[in-house]
């Protein structure tokens, strides 16, 4: 195993996430894509940690932080989507342009 293989995998996953983030119309699927991107980040973190075997396991700690923040993000994100759905009867993100002037 070499480090690059994990990094490339992470990059691939991240790119797929970017694609999803930009191309999806449904708000839930956009969130899913964000999760993919975060997963890619986690892979990188863990890989770096494993290859630079630090005694203090910084990579793992950060991965856990990322997971936690992702959980928080999903909670808030879903709450917003639910609210939007309730008010607009649609989960489509391109109708979500209320922030526009």
């Amino acid at each position: 195993m070499i480090l690059s293989q994990f990094l490339v995998l992470g990059a691939l996953l991240f790119s797929i996430g970017v694609y999803g983030l930009l191309s999806r119309r449904n708000a839930v699927t956009v969130l899913l894509a964000v999760e993919l991107m975060l997963a890619a980040v986690n892979i990188n973190l863990i890989a770096f940690e494993a290859f630079w075997n630090t005694a203090a396991a910084h990579g793992q700690i950060f991965a856990i932080f990322v997971i936690t923040i992702a959980a928080a993000e999903v909670g808030i994100g879903l709450a917003i989507i639910l609210l939007v759905f309730r008010n607009r009867a649609s989960g489509n993100i391109d109708q979500l342009d209320l922030m526009r002037w």
Partner: peptide
């Protein structure tokens, strides 16, 4: 159809990132 018509620009951006 869960995607909208920004598919190609998005793909381009993703490819760019990769």
């Amino acid at each position: 159809n869960l995607s909208h018509n920004t598919r190609w620009p998005a793909a381009a951006a993703a490819l760019g990132v990769f």
